[in-house]
Computed example of a mutant assay.
Amino acid sequence: MRKQLILPAILAVPFLFACNEDEPEVILPPVAAFETEKEIYDQGEPIEFFNLSENAESYLWTFGADETSTEENPVYTPVFPSNAQGYGFRVRLVAMGADGTTDTVLSFARASKRALRTITITEMSEDIIEKIPFEYGKVTELYLLTGIVNAPYDWINEYQTYPARTITEDFSIPYDFYISPSWSDVYMGNQEWFFHLHASVKGSEEVVSVKRIVFNPTHYEWYEAEKGYNAYDIGDEEISLKVRFFYFE
């Protein structure tokens, strides 16, 4: 009896395989999708696009009017139109499946110039404070130079620096530097910049270099600050600075 029961089961196995071989392969349609790490990027900052598409074998990206890429996860640095302060551009992704069908998704990316507004010294070590010269009965001028590293020094002039602030020995932290009204278009992008703090007793020709910091603004995570400004914090063990700015629309 056991042999008679086993034989039909064995004969049925080829029939099952034959049925599976006749079934067509199911190809799912492609679904195009992508994202970026941030909502807004700085002038000159590369934008990395993360491809989230499904069931796709090839891709065609279009940035703006005519820049294209076939990479899966492209990196694109937008070129600002002449005299533009902000730049929004369309991004289109076409995902193609194995059977030639496609799916398209459209979105927009935004890049902007970062306009510098104020700098606040939030912390200063005793070693730094000791470098600041003071004389009895006189005030000391504390001022800040800023500019692009390796740019010609002539670029740094009285119209592109923060005006001097007068202090006495009992000055307190935090301490603010405000942008000069004549220096209204300071665009800090994806470059190395410096802040250089100087001090001198008013009326004296001797200028003391207090502290110099080199940094790239785009390497610091920013947050929303007061009065509609954004801000980021830079510094080291000797000094900490809060830099306020806003993005152009």
Score class of each variant (00 low, 15 high):
L116N: 10
R117G: 01
N55S: 08
M96D: 06
R92H: 00
F17R: 03
T70F: 10
K131P: 03
L197H: 02
L52A: 13
I119Q: 02
I167D: 02
E141Q: 05
P14W: 01
E123M: 13
E71I: 05
H196I: 04
R92N: 06
V210F: 02
P74R: 03
L60M: 09
Y187S: 10
C19W: 13
A151L: 11
I239L: 11
D99Y: 09
F89V: 02
F50E: 09
E237S: 12
P24Q: 11
N83F: 15
D154P: 03
A84I: 04
N51E: 04
W155Q: 14
R114D: 06
V13H: 02
S204T: 06
M1E: 07
F80T: 08
V207M: 01
E123Y: 15
T101P: 04
M96Y: 12
I6F: 08
I47H: 01
L93T: 01
E37K: 08
V210I: 13
Y76A: 00
F34P: 00
V214C: 10
E224L: 12
Y232W: 04
Y247K: 09
E72M: 10
A84Q: 04
S240A: 11
F246Y: 15
E71A: 06
Y178E: 13
E226N: 05
S172F: 08
P81W: 06
I234N: 00
Q4Y: 11
I179A: 11
E39K: 10
F80D: 10
K138S: 14
A65M: 10
T77N: 03
E169L: 10
I6H: 05
M124E: 07
D154S: 14
W155V: 14
I129W: 10
N190T: 06
E205L: 09
K227S: 13
T101N: 13
V75K: 00
F245S: 04
K202C: 07
Y247L: 13
E35N: 13
E25I: 13
V75W: 00
V149C: 12
G147F: 02
P14Y: 02
F49E: 07
H196P: 02
V186T: 13
R92W: 02
I128E: 02
T101E: 11
L197C: 01
F50R: 08
E57N: 12
L241P: 00
G44V: 08
Y229V: 03
D236T: 07
F245N: 04
D127F: 13
I121H: 00
C19H: 11
R110G: 08
A95E: 00
E25L: 12
V201M: 05
L116P: 07
K3D: 09
Y162H: 04
V208R: 01
E123K: 12
W193H: 15
G235E: 03
F134Y: 09
E192S: 13
G86A: 15
K211P: 05
F34D: 01
N190R: 06
D22Q: 15
Y159W: 15
D185T: 15
A109R: 02
P24K: 11
L241E: 03
Y59C: 05
F50D: 07
Y76N: 00
C19R: 12
I179T: 14
G228P: 04
A98V: 09
L116V: 05
F195I: 01
P152T: 07
E35I: 12
K38N: 11
Y247T: 08
G203K: 00
L7M: 14
W61G: 00
G97T: 07
E192C: 05
Y247I: 08
A9V: 09
I234E: 02
K242A: 10
E57K: 09
L52K: 14
G228W: 09
D42F: 15
